[in-house]
Amino acid sequence: MHKDKDAALVNDCKRGDRRAMTRLVSQYQRPVFNAAYRILGNTDDAADATQTVFLKVFEHLADYDQKFKFFSWVYRIAVNEALNQVKKRRSQESLDDGQASSWQGPAEALDSKRLCKRVQDALMLLNEDYRTVVVLKHISGCSYQQISEILQLPEKTVKSRLYSARQLLKKTLQDDESDQQGQ
């Protein structure tokens, strides 16, 4: 997220310098993939989305307005692409009801992998608006202001969505735990 460095690399890319392109891809591939993965919930879709994101980024490099941070622009494309894939997937198939797998016991007793899966499952139960702000905040490590810039929403809306999303996640995880204990 180094604005000046990114701006220089972007300018080099516009002149056809593939090394600059490689550096930008190296820098942003992992965070974009991780954000896409947490929004989409599976590796293949996240990889497809990431690939498409970078193709769009470099295809539309001439349209990039340098008054915005490059990473904000990339994340905006990434979020839009991930959400497009969510919509596409929803129209192609009904969501897998088995996504919210049974809670395997209290959080303390779960091994880390299972716990991660539970949290990811809970994330997938959020609507896309809420999931996106949670991912940008907790996976991508963006501030309210950065999320506001990426999603082009007022900060107040970002906060409101984030707070609501956390409450819903809390409830989902608690309900899962209650269900498990009741079995």
């Binding site: 890319c13 516009k14 002149r15 056809g16 310098d17 593939r18 392109m21 490689t22 891809v25 591939q29 990431t50 690939q51 970078f54 193709l55 470099f58 295809e59």
Partner: peptide, 8 residues
């Protein structure tokens, strides 16, 4: 990604 990206 790198293979597919087209630059001027």
């Amino acid at each position: 990604i790198e293979r597919q990206v087209r630059l001027p």
